[in-house]
Design a binder for these strands. Structure first.
Length: 421
RNA sequence: GCGGAUGUAGCUCAGUGGUUAGAGCGCCUGACUGUGGCUCAGGAGGUCGCGGGUUCAAUUCUCGUUAUCCGCCCCA
């Protein structure tokens, strides 16, 4: 085997495409009920866009950017997430002037240059929503309701979403000092590299998996103790709204998110079927649009990792199955080829999903193919049927067979109960 | 980016320092010439990841490389 898919990428094979189509269909149907419109942005952007939005200190920028120079010597980056490009387009085309609202959704590939492992790819896909122009708790509740309704619809609604508030810039600045002070003893014991990382992003310590760090965190006051009054009020209001909407949630002080642009509300969702990897995450990013040159615009949104959702569904054995054809047409004798071609065309024109053997293989082989195709019916045509203007319709699941006049075929196919195997 | 494991048929995996490298599943053909699923028989299909080294001889030992998987960092 000479070529294979590039490292960290995945082909979506015919046997898997039904899953993707099902997820996409559920998502689109759902978000359209909430008035969201789709946006599609390029696969790559000016590297500076992500440097500004993700934050210089974040891991995404410091080591996971899939960036390169193009032939025109431009620095470009394959998008590491869906939000920043969408916001760039919003600004470029003035889609959300001050005072307006805008609701966007997308399904996009995204790219991160890390070492692939379980639930972690270099190219993956994100289903996302962004609600622009509102700073209300109701906006936060709306996007969370969408995300959690989707999870419930596809069968992953058993667990609550973890929510937190990280407040405004001033609050986080204050809290960073608190964390650093609380963790000083722990950090003194760490490698220089870990210490530098922690000093750049102290909040990252909060969801550390290091048992020592976890011990050291005991007794640390949650960030919600340091929220400004309006942030606190909004966070409380959000919880009431989620309860009212029957969205299961849990307040989790350690959820802080890795991208610099988040403010106030943040959230993350994990499944017990895929521990340690979030299936979706998001929150409020009130500063992002202004940061990249647009008018100050409060926003909230989320991104769902499609591959991870599928992994979780696989673990639960809840995958949808691809639908086979409705009918398999079998030429019982070699002279029936022409008749079969016409019959196949007619049936397709009537809306049936029809397969047949283009290789004129043996009758037995054609029936075997019919069986494998999962079609509930086989239609058999040979010299005899052509002469008498009849057809044999075989119900492959039941093993029954009927001989019918040719003009009754579509009627029989529609009315004969086609229970699945 | 760091650590560990693995790489033999389409798939899941056995196996051996030396003739023609195997199994199960899958695939194809056939079992009184027009009836699938079950059974039986036969068949196709492999440069044993790639490159170097040791050796009379390497798929087997060794080194490198590459890829995959798992864990970590981080996140979707």
């Amino acid at each position: 085997m000479k070529f294979q898919a590039p490292r960290g990428t995945e082909d979506i094979l015919p046997s898997q495409s039904a899953i993707w189509q099902t997820l996409e269909h559920h998502f689109q149907t759902l978000v359209e009920k909430f008035g969201y419109a789709e946006i599609r942005t390029p696969a790559f952007e000016d590297s500076d866009l992500f440097r500004r939005t993700a934050g210089e200190a974040s891991d995404i920028v410091t080591k996971e950017m899939y960036d390169f120079k193009d032939k025109g010597d431009r620095n470009v980056t394959l998008k590491p997430e869906g939000t920043a490009p969408a916001m760039r387009a919003v600004i470029q085309y003035a889609l959300c002037p001050p005072g307006n609202h805008l609701r966007l959704w997308y399904l996009t590939p995204f790219f991160r240059y890390g070492r692939p492992a379980r639930g972690r790819w270099r190219q993956a896909h994100q289903l996302g929503c962004e609600l622009l122009g509102s700073s209300s708790a109701q906006a936060d509740a709306e996007v969370l309701e969408i995300a959690m309704t989707f999870m419930a619809q596809i069968g992953l609604g058993d667990e609550p979403v973890m929510i937190n508030s990280i407040g405004r810039d001033e609050c986080r600045a204050k809290y960073r000092e608190v964390v650093l002070q609380h963790m000083a003893a722990y950090l003194a014991d760490q490698e220089a590299e870990a210490r530098a990382l922690a000093e750049k992003n102290p909040l990252g310590l909060l969801d550390s998996k290091d048992p020592k760090a976890k011990d050291a965190l005991v007794g640390l006051a949650p960030i919600t103790d340091f929220l400004e009054d309006d942030s606190k009020a909004r966070f409380e209001s959000l919880q009431e709204l989620l309860t009212e909407a029957e969205v299961p949630y849990k307040v989790a002080p350690y959820v802080v998110r890795g991208l610099d642009y988040y403010t106030e509300t943040v959230f993350e969702f994990e499944s017990k079927h895929l521990e340690g990897l979030s299936l979706f995450g998001g929150g409020r990013y009130d500063n992002l649009v202004k940061e990249i040159g647009g008018p100050a615009t409060p926003c909230v949104g989320f991104g769902i990792g499609v591959e991870r959702v599928i992994l979780a569904l696989e673990a639960m054995k809840k995958l949808p199955v691809a639908k086979g054809p409705d009918v398999f047409v079998v030429a019982a004798t070699a002279d029936a080829g022409g008749y079969c071609r016409k019959l196949v065309r007619d049936l397709r024109a009537q809306g049936f999903r029809v397969e047949w053997d283009v290789d004129n293989r043996s009758f037995k082989s054609q029936l075997r193919q019919a069986d494998k195709s999962t079609a509930p019916f086989a239609v058999l045509v040979g010299t005899e049927e052509i002469e008498t203007e009849t057809l044999k319709v075989r119900h492959l699941n039941k093993g029954e067979q009927r001989e019918i006049p040719q003009h009754e075929l579509s009627e029989v196919l529609r009315t004969w109960e086609s229970a699945n195997k």
